[in-house]
C-alpha cells in the first residue's frame, strides 16, 4: 500500500481572521504572532478590514486592542459599518478595547514632533505593557504611518517596528499595522522600511477597469504559510468584508 501523503504545508497555529475569503487566501489565517502590514491608499477599506479582524477575535473570546493614531476612537466607533455580527457587549466586557495614541503620548510625556531612540523604546514598552496587562491576542495600530512621521529617520522606524514586532510576537499577539500610501506609490509603505520588516503584507487598492473603480486586495507576502498571490475584489458589507477573485478575461488594463 502506498504511504499516505500529507499535503498540509504548515503546522504553525493560525490566527483566523474570520474574513472567509482572506482566511482561504492565507491557507487558514495569519500565522499566530506575525506582524503584518495592511497597506493602501485612502478609501480602500484598511480600517474596516482591521476592525473586522478584531471583532472576530473578540467574538472568539480573545482580547483585542485597536490603537487609533489618526482618529478619535469614539468617532471611529460611530463611523464603522454596523456589522450584523457585532455585539456591543464585547466592548463592555473588555474584549474589544480602543485606545487613542495621542492619549498614550500625553501620558508618556511624548508631546513632541520627533522622538529620539530612547523615546521609541519608551513607546514600545508602553504598548507592550498594555498588551501584557490585558493579555491582548490581536492588535491593530491605525496607522503606523502616523507614528512613523514622528520617528522621521529610517533607522528609528526600523528600530520601532523590529522591537514592537518582536515584543508582540513573544507575547503571542498577532498584530496588524495599517500603512497609508498615496495611490501612485510604487512601494507598500511610505518610508520603505515597514514593508521589509513586516512578516506579511496585505495590499489594498483601487483598480480602474473601463471606467469602473474596483476595490482590490492582494496578499503580497506572508511568512509562515503558503498563500494566494492573486488579486481579489472586495466589498465592505454589514456581513463583513467579502472577497471574490478579480476576473481577468483578457480585458484588465494595468491590473
Amino acid at each position: 500500500m502506498a504511504p499516505k501523503v500529507d499535503l498540509s504545508t504548515s503546522t504553525r497555529e493560525r490566527c483566523v481572521t474570520g474574513i472567509q475569503g482572506l482566511d482561504n487566501a492565507l491557507d487558514g489565517g495569519i500565522p499566530r504572532g506575525n506582524t503584518i502590514l495592511v497597506t493602501g491608499s485612502c478609501g480602500t477599506g484598511k480600517t474596516t478590514l482591521s476592525l473586522e479582524f478584531l471583532v472576530h477575535g473578540a467574538l472568539d473570546g480573545e482580547t483585542c486592542l485597536f490603537i487609533s493614531v489618526t482618529e478619535a476612537s469614539s468617532k471611529l466607533l460611530t463611523n464603522i459599518i454596523p456589522y450584523d455580527f457585532f455585539e456591543e457587549s464585547l466592548i463592555k466586557k473588555g474584549k474589544l478595547i480602543f485606545v487613542d495614541m495621542p492619549v498614550v503620548y500625553e501620558r508618556l510625556g511624548l508631546n513632541k514632533l520627533e522622538f529620539s531612540l530612547e523615546e521609541v523604546d519608551v513607546l514600545v514598552r508602553a504598548v507592550a505593557d498594555i498588551v501584557k496587562e490585558m493579555d491582548v491576542k490581536r492588535l491593530v495600530i491605525d496607522s503606523i504611518t502616523s507614528v512613523c512621521y514622528r520617528l522621521r529617520t529610517q533607522e528609528k522606524i526600523r528600530d520601532f517596528i523590529l522591537k514592537i514586532g518582536a515584543t508582540l510576537s513573544s507575547l503571542g499577539c498577532t498584530s496588524v499595522l495599517v500603512s497609508e500610501i498615496s495611490p501612485a506609490e510604487e512601494r507598500y509603505s511610505l518610508f520603505g522600511v515597514e514593508e521589509a520588516i513586516a512578516d506579511g503584507i496585505i495590499f489594498m487598492g483601487n483598480l480602474e477597469r473601463r471606467g469602473d473603480l474596483l476595490r482590490t486586495l492582494q496578499v503580497v507576502k506572508m511568512r509562515g504559510t503558503q498563500h494566494s498571490r492573486t488579486k481579489y475584489v472586495l466589498d465592505l458589507t454589514s456581513a463583513g468584508v467579502l472577497l471574490v477573485p478579480l476576473l481577468k478575461g483578457g480585458s484588465v488594463a494595468g491590473g
Binding site: R209, R210, G211, D212, L214, V233, L234, D235, T237, A239, L242, V244, P245, L246, L247
Partner: peptide, 15 residues
C-alpha cells in the same frame, strides 16, 4: 453601478 462590474454582482449575491 454597472453590468460591467461582474465581480460586484458576485459579491452582492454572496452577501
Amino acid at each position: 453601478e454597472s453590468p460591467t462590474m461582474l465581480e460586484n454582482l458576485m459579491l452582492k449575491v454572496e452577501y
